[in-house]
Write a protein that binds this DNA or RNA. Sequence first.
DNA 1: CTAATATTCAACCTATTGGTTGAATATGAT
DNA 2: ATCATATTCAACCAATAGGTTGAATATTAG
Lengths: 107, 107
Amino acid sequence: MIAAALDNTMLALADPTRRAILQRLASGETRVTDLAAPFAMSLNAVSKHIRILERAHLVRRRRAGREHLLSLDPKPLDEAAAWIEQQRQFWTARLDALERALAENDD
Amino acid sequence: MIAAALDNTMLALADPTRRAILQRLASGETRVTDLAAPFAMSLNAVSKHIRILERAHLVRRRRAGREHLLSLDPKPLDEAAAWIEQQRQFWTARLDALERALAENDD
DNA sequence: CTAATATTCAACCTATTGGTTGAATATGAT
DNA sequence: ATCATATTCAACCAATAGGTTGAATATTAG
């Protein structure tokens, strides 16, 4: 089964370290080393997380000499947000309908 | 590290089968067997997915005799949606700022 | 009581994840 | 040229995920 775009996005977002990386990247282009510094794990571990974020197209890499500068690409988030919002809407509508039905039953 | 609520939610949403289960549940309370029927995997596998959804508090279980009726709880989605929306907002703002800066540079 | 149904529990298997360490590669600084 | 820096690659490891099958449990139906 080929992994759909939404799959990769959701998978990438499932890990707290990766979410932290994304938040950190929100302040602008960052080198791998600087990005990794605050995390209590090896540079290599962070490097692997970055690969997963790249696979999901949430992070872009620009080579500048020996440094790799990472930046965010928010596009894939649209699909993820859309999925969640759609569910929320459906479910909330359903719950509201249920509540109304119960209220009518009280008459 | 204790898994935060958002962690469990995101993890639960990361699997396509579980997202499909949630979508299926949007049409109302459903028995485990009926819920599992359309999936190309054993009932046991679906049962395990349900446990994970329960751990994330996205699904509630009501026992009615030998049947377990499952229903949705949209609350955890709020936090997930909030996280994604916040990121989107930040990143988009940043990208817009960058574009404006480039435009000014053209003058 | 017995048989069927609905569901979980338990053990197992394989693939993936998230981490490690050590070596390789590429670039920059002196 | 040499040394340091930035980063990945490769091999490994333990834990988890996602699936299987078979047995156990609880409830309902005949």
